[in-house]
Design a protein around this nucleic acid. Structure first.
Lengths: 146, 146
DNA sequence: GTATATGCAAAGTCTTTGCATCGTT
DNA sequence: AACGATGCAAAGACTTTGCATATAC
């Protein structure tokens, strides 16, 4: 079910603003900041304030329908909620963010719980480096990540 | 060698302000924010502005003598640089931050490089959950992490 | 003595909030 | 029709920066 539909099922009003933010979040390839989400959503629903984007994201976070990841830039990047562990691979050159399944995380969780009594609720694994494409490219198009 | 000494060896002036910030960073158990570092350092060197703390940290970061980690609160937390991979375990209840050696990270790096061509430069693994002490305690003293 | 570091205060960036108005249900 | 959501603008939190003064070398 779409994030927008889930919002409605929780009893919240489904305004055009909320709907477009949810849909844009759903459709996004990478992890969008509030501002990127605002830009893209505004192209569809012109009457959308940045404040509403933030309010919608806060709401989605509370309902566990979305969650934020902090990259080295310190800004919040948003993704629809999901229950599988994963890496975030951030390329320093092209800034692409990709997901990678993290089977090892289960091993980590088990180890922490059984050997150290630490009950993991949230595992955030961000790997910064150079993606395969950028390693092969000349550095002419490189940009340093914030 | 202390962080302060390394600063000097890089040719930078070793002012009382820089020295106390470096020493406080060196001595810290957990990961301090700029503000916490300012508080603790000010107790030793009264004439220390928050701006100087930030400037010193920026300098240490550039020289790779310190690095910052972002927790879910979005603020930068600082630690002396080191070359071993590690987890950051953040307890949601007591807010304690502990380090944990991360042998598995080597496996992760190798996998990403050989199977996916991704050259990892920085691996940041933050695990949020409940530490052993807090799992046993009554929840009366619990605080939710920002 | 001189170049560099500092404190202060102002500005910058990202995010949240107060309030009057608008719109979904 | 009523209550909740919105836009706007102001405020908040964290961090950076301009400038005159102080200081390490």
């Amino acid at each position: 079910m779409s994030v927008a539909q889930q919002l409605r099922e929780h009893g919240y009003r489904l305004t055009p603003q909320r709907r477009v933010v949810c849909d844009t979040l759903d459709a996004a390839q990478g992890h969008l900041t509030a501002e990127e989400l605002h830009e893209r959503s505004s192209a569809v629903v012109a009457d959308l304030s940045l404040a509403s984007v933030y309010r919608t994201l806060t709401l989605l976070d509370q309902l566990a329908l979305a969650r934020q990841v902090r990259f080295a830039d310190g800004r919040a990047h948003w993704e629809p909620a999901h229950d599988h562990d994963e890496f975030h691979l951030v390329c320093r050159s092209c800034e692409a963010v990709t997901h990678h399944p993290a089977d090892l995380v289960t091993t980590v969780r088990d180890h922490l719980l059984h050997d150290h009594g630490f009950d993991s609720q949230r595992v955030e694994l961000v790997v910064t480096g150079l993606c395969a494409d950028c390693r092969n490219d000349s550095p002419r198009t490189s940009r340093v990540l914030g």
